[in-house]
């Protein structure tokens, strides 16, 4: 578990660094991309977890993102919905790089759609769907394809560490057994 937590934290850490070098323009006069490696790390992590656990993680991470970024409860609602979609769809996909990148991009789109609908619904934005896609979503999806491909290397490293830790745990397991004693 600790490796998964560190993996997601590393993603959000990378987002912070990237956002310092590529600051967003809230005026949206230019096309923007929203660094989302933390979110993609979360999506990669939940593929291997049970639905209940993934939902709880979605709420937890959604709360943290809301507290640090949006300052209102939006991702705490959007993330669990994305979890449902990703978990259900993941069952029909393999673990190949192409399919993982594909599901990552779809998860990004779903998050962006959820955020857009929320902010449109509460009247914070009047952005038209065409401009929303052209100015915010398009570049975000495109840029994250190579980034996610590179990030999958870190994910493989994390999976190796998790497997090692699991093997170690099993190796050190002992069972008390005394001949003749009923269990």
């Amino acid at each position: 578990m600790i490796y998964n937590v560190l993996f997601v934290l590393a993603g959000f850490f990378m987002d912070t660094i990237l956002s310092l070098f590529f600051p967003l323009d809230p005026a949206l006069r230019t096309i923007v991309w929203v660094p989302s490696l933390g979110y993609l790390s979360f999506v990669l992590t939940i593929r291997k977890r049970s639905l209940g656990e993934a939902l709880a993680l979605g709420v937890l991470i959604g709360f943290i993102v809301d507290a640090l970024q949006y300052q209102q409860p939006v991702t705490i609602l959007v993330f669990p919905l994305v979890v449902f979609a990703v978990k259900n769809w993941s069952e029909h996909l393999n673990d190949s790089v192409v399919e993982t990148i594909f599901i990552g991009v779809v998860a990004l789109f779903l998050r962006e759609l959820g955020l857009y609908l929320w902010f449109l619904g509460i009247g914070v934005t009047r952005l038209t769907p065409e401009l929303w896609f052209a100015k915010r979503v398009f570049l975000t999806l495109i840029v994250h394809i190579p980034l996610l491909w590179a990030w999958l290397g870190v994910n493989r490293l994390k999976n190796t560490l998790v497997a090692h830790a699991e093997a170690n745990r099993r190796f050190q397991e002992t069972a008390l057994w005394r001949p003749g004693q009923k269990r």
């Binding site: 939902l55 979605g58 709420v59 937890l60 709360f63 409860p73 705490i76």
Partner: peptide, 17 residues
């Protein structure tokens, strides 16, 4: 652990709402 996680999630969700 999962039950603990679920409880934490529930509390945070309720608190945020």
């Amino acid at each position: 652990f999962n039950r603990f996680l679920l409880k934490i999630g529930g509390v945070l969700l309720a608190g945020s709402l």
